[in-house]
Simulated scan of single mutants.
Amino acid sequence: MPDLVSVNYRKYDGSLHWNLRMRRLGEDGHGVWLGLPAGAVMRKGYGPPVPIECAHVILFPHEVWWTAVFNAAPRETEVYCDIATPPEWVSDHEVTMVDLDLDVLRKRTDGSTLLVDQDEFAEHQVRYRYPADVIAEAEAAGRWLMDAVDGRAEPFGNAFEPWLGMVDGERP
């Protein structure tokens, strides 16, 4: 039986956000890698299953304020980074973090790198009363990711490719 991990993104008030179960692929100097083939599902909160069109892997780095999703083609977004509190491993089979709204993504079509959801980040600073240090860490992570993702610094160059190859073409 594959080593499955529950991935639980939460909002700052503790409510369940995006969540899914993924297969543990391994760990390297960048962090822990989990993956899913195309056709798997995820949920937003306790809502209905949302099908995942393309294989993808998620990197959970150690002690940084982001996670990174690497999508297989033909998905338009090649890299999608969630700015979040550092991933907390509740157990070997569960990881959780607080999604802080800001996202950095790289488009496959033209290679452009974008910082998105600044409006949601501003709104949630008020709604959830983000402390000043959380705001500062999220903003710093956004700046760092914009440079690293755009510059294709690892793991945003090709370090993810072998991990993605482990799930691309599989069936859930």
Rank of each mutant, 00 (worst) to 15 (best):
F60K: 02
P61D: 08
V64H: 07
W66V: 10
T67G: 08
F70C: 03
N71F: 09
A73Q: 08
A73L: 01
V79R: 09
V79I: 15
V79A: 07
Y80T: 00
Y80M: 06
C81N: 00
C81T: 08
C81S: 11
C81P: 04
I83H: 07
A84Q: 03
P87C: 07
P87L: 06
P87N: 09
V90R: 06
S91R: 04
H93Y: 08
T96I: 08
D99S: 00
D101L: 00
V104E: 01
R106L: 00
K107F: 12
K107S: 13
R108T: 03
T109H: 14
D110N: 11
G111K: 02
G111Y: 02
S112M: 11
S112K: 14
T113N: 07
L114V: 09
L115M: 05
L115I: 10
V116C: 04
D117H: 02
D117Q: 00
Q118P: 00
Q118W: 13
E120C: 03
F121K: 03
E123A: 15
E123V: 12
H124N: 14
Q125S: 11
Y128H: 14
Y128V: 09
R129W: 11
R129C: 15
Y130H: 06
A132S: 13
V134R: 05
I135Y: 09
I135V: 15
I135K: 10
E137F: 11
E137Y: 11
A138N: 04
E139C: 07
G142L: 02
G142Q: 09
R143E: 14
W144D: 14
W144Y: 15
L145P: 04
